[in-house]
Measured scan of single mutants.
Amino acid sequence: MSRVPSPPPPAEMSSGPVAESWCYTQIKVVKFSYMWTINNFSFCREEMGEVIKSSTFSSGANDKLKWCLRVNPKGLDEESKDYLSLYLLLVSCPKSEVRAKFKFSILNAKGEETKAMESQRAYRFVQGKDWGFKKFIRRDFLLDEANGLLPDDKLTLFCEVSVVQDSVNISGQNTMNMVKVPECRLADELGGLWENSRFTDCCLCVAGQEFQAHKAILAARSPVFSAMFEHEMEESKKNRVEINDVEPEVFKEMMCFIYTGKAPNLDKMADDLLAAADKYALERLKVMCEDALCSNLSVENAAEILILADLHSADQLKTQAVDFINYHASDVLETSGWKSMVVSHPHLVAEAYRSLASAQCPFLGPPRKRLKQS
């Protein structure tokens, strides 16, 4: 649940008159999402009104509101027999009622949201009550392989729920002597030191190019640089560091992050930047690179990204790559990247197969709970 924001200063709310007192009302909304995959969808019983329910879910471990999704594969009634019906059901509720908006969509073979439908307002739910769409999607369109909505005969539904909580009022009075504290510009100011090479005390040599930097900042941000300058190493004695395995453009992006906490060109060089972040123990930059690479996972590059993640101990990226390969196994196994990995990294192939087997055979063990970014 997000923290209630402070109200904007009255002088910034309007260029008009300023009242002596004010009130700011925040209506709290808890948002969460749920993904439900139905394997072997074409084998569902086709009687009209037949119901399939998901397991229950909530916004978190401490949330007492429990929900589930309900599907009628062949419609709810005679009117909707040519459609799939989809509903959000409130299973248990400690209150007399709650209000919530919802959005349903289908994830296609690429994991993209399609055929989205959402409620136009927050509906009133009581325990045992459901709301949804009797005519969510035509069955003939859903079952047509050309539309790519049932890869490997799996129907994957994605649901986003927004639950309306209580409202909170914050009130106060205006004073004539309003003090406005300026925003912190530390990142910009440190970035200026790097860009202008002011007050530098060490030189970093990268592929024949020299960059002036500040030992204190490098040591504070990177345990690797800290070790170089702290001990009686040649880098500490000469205040000069030779860097041979990072390209200059990648190095500059890494230094921008060290000084400012930002990497504006990360998406263009996420793979190389991940390697640099791993070498210099820049954990936050490493996770930022993992996130960017996750966003660009595809059938063509899944094997290469899995190898990269394994090489640099990028655990979150590795998990996402394995899950992606499992979901698109029939396509990924035909790529040149996968065939190369079979020869060069057989242990990763074995890991992917083990994960695929456990996903398809849940009876082999208890269900695993899916539970950071600093």
Rank of each mutant, 00 (worst) to 15 (best):
C44E: 04
K339V: 02
K134W: 01
L89G: 01
S226L: 15
L218A: 00
R3M: 08
A216S: 02
G132K: 00
V332L: 10
F251I: 02
F251W: 12
D153H: 04
V332K: 00
S6I: 09
S313G: 02
K31W: 08
A302H: 00
K101H: 12
E234L: 12
D278V: 01
I137E: 13
L150M: 04
D63R: 10
M255W: 08
F257K: 01
Y280M: 10
V4E: 15
D152V: 13
V287R: 04
N39F: 05
V206E: 03
L89N: 15
T25Y: 14
M254Y: 03
K95Q: 10
S85Q: 10
K31E: 03
T56A: 08
L348Y: 06
N169C: 03
K134S: 01
A187C: 09
C205H: 13
F102K: 00
V168G: 10
A277K: 00
F104P: 00
N40I: 05
S374M: 10
K115P: 15
E113S: 06
F104I: 11
R354F: 05
A357Y: 11
L76P: 15
E249V: 02
K95Y: 12
C93G: 11
E234R: 14
M48L: 06
K64Q: 10
A61L: 10
F125A: 00
G132A: 00
W67D: 00
L317V: 03
S54Y: 00
M228V: 11
M254W: 10
A213P: 07
A220G: 08
L89K: 14
C23E: 02
L143T: 11
I243N: 02
N39I: 04
E247G: 02
S330Q: 13
K81E: 10
A350W: 07
L89S: 05
M233Y: 11
M176G: 01
H231A: 14
A216M: 08
T156M: 04
W67T: 01
N296T: 11
V71Q: 13
S340D: 12
N40P: 05
L88W: 02
T114N: 13
C205G: 13
M178D: 03
D278L: 10
R370Q: 14
G191D: 12
S313N: 05
L155M: 08
H214P: 02
K268Y: 05
V164C: 09
E210Y: 15
L90K: 12
S344T: 07
G132Q: 00
Y280T: 10
V287Q: 02
L293T: 11
V343Y: 09
N169H: 05
R139W: 03
E253D: 01
K129Q: 14
C289P: 00
L356D: 00
C289E: 01
K372A: 08
E253L: 06
V332S: 01
R368K: 15
L155I: 09
N72T: 03
L149W: 10
P9Y: 02
Q127R: 10
R45L: 07
K268T: 01
S197D: 15
K101F: 15
K28A: 12
N301D: 12
P94R: 12
G192I: 12
A292N: 06
K339N: 11
V30F: 06
C23M: 02
I243R: 06
S171K: 06
K252Y: 06
S162C: 04
S85M: 15
N174L: 05
L348W: 00
R198C: 15
L311W: 05
V349L: 04
P9M: 05
D315V: 04
F57G: 01
Q165F: 03
K101I: 02
D201A: 00
K110F: 13
E160Q: 12
S162H: 13
Y280E: 00
G337R: 04
F199V: 15
R240L: 10
A227G: 14
I243G: 03
F125N: 00
A276P: 01
V224M: 10
Q120C: 13
S54M: 00
Q127K: 14
L89A: 15
M1D: 00
V168Q: 09
P366N: 15
E351D: 04
P248W: 09
D245Y: 04
R198G: 12
W67R: 00
E112L: 11
G337E: 06
W22H: 12
K129G: 13
D272V: 02
V30W: 13
C184W: 02
K369T: 03
F41Y: 06
K115L: 09
K74E: 14
P248N: 08
V126R: 08
Q127Y: 12
C159S: 03
